[in-house]
């Protein structure tokens, strides 16, 4: 217990870091995932190719490798940003590939007749997707997107290895100060649980409100 009370501000700082990383990366992942899912079902072949490449590359790259590529690679092209921003980019892009596929599986659950009806009324691709298909797909993708964002919260720990302030990274300082390593990690785990259970709770509410009634 002493570990927590003695170092509360350190824990709090790390906790806040993880929350921020998770929050901003989630926003980026949802936006990019949405865009890529639209690309993957678009009637234009080149857009589909972009979407497929995006998913294939990012989903099959180990996240740590992606962090190296972003943090060490982008500065070589003259793009120098704070490490925390780089971490958000790496996490967001990586997770967007999974969000894209979850959304696409949801789109595939909507009967083709819905899209045909919309098109037969003169709606274009964007209107068909946003007014008819996605609202119905949304209801089935709530659970998998929740899982993906929980994974994102935990993946954010990798950012700690690149000197971004986040929850797991606090253990280094604490073990140097000589605190019991087991209790150090227990409190870190509690911190992650607070975040992941909050995401779970949020998605449970969403599912209750918008999910498909059975």
């Amino acid at each position: 217990m002493d570990v927590l009370t003695d170092n509360f501000s350190l824990y709090a700082e790390g906790f806040l870091g993880t929350v921020q990383l998770t929050f901003f990366s989630s926003l980026l992942a949802l936006a990019l995932g949405f865009l890529m899912a639209a690309f993957r079902v678009a009637p234009v072949a080149s857009l589909r190719a972009i979407g497929t490449t995006w998913v294939t590359v990012l989903r099959n790259t180990p996240l740590t490798l992606l962090f190296f590529a972003v943090l060490l690679g982008l500065p070589r092209f003259g793009l120098v940003l704070p490490f925390a921003v780089f971490a958000v980019i790496a996490l967001g892009c990586y997770t967007s590939a999974f969000i894209c596929e979850a959304l696409r599986s949801g789109i595939n659950t909507v009967p083709t007749g819905q899209g045909e009806a919309a098109r037969s009324l003169g709606m274009n691709f964007g209107q068909t997707l946003s007014f008819v298909v996605l609202p119905q797909a949304f209801r089935t993708v709530i659970p998998p997107i929740g899982s993906t964002l929980i994974a994102l919260a935990k993946n954010s720990a990798i950012a700690g290895a690149f000197s971004v302030t986040e929850l797991l990274g606090t253990y280094k300082t604490l073990s140097e100060l000589g605190y019991n390593i087991v209790w150090t990690f227990v409190w870190i785990a509690v911190g992650y649980l607070i975040i992941t259970l909050s995401i779970s709770a949020l998605f449970n509410v969403l599912e209750k409100r918008y999910g498909v009634a059975r």
């Binding site: 009967p111 007749g113 819905q114 045909e116 009806a117 609202p135 119905q136 209801r139």
Partner: peptide, 9 residues
């Protein structure tokens, strides 16, 4: 259409 295809939502 045969299957009506009304927007279910």
């Amino acid at each position: 259409f045969q299957s009506f295809n009304l927007f279910a939502h």
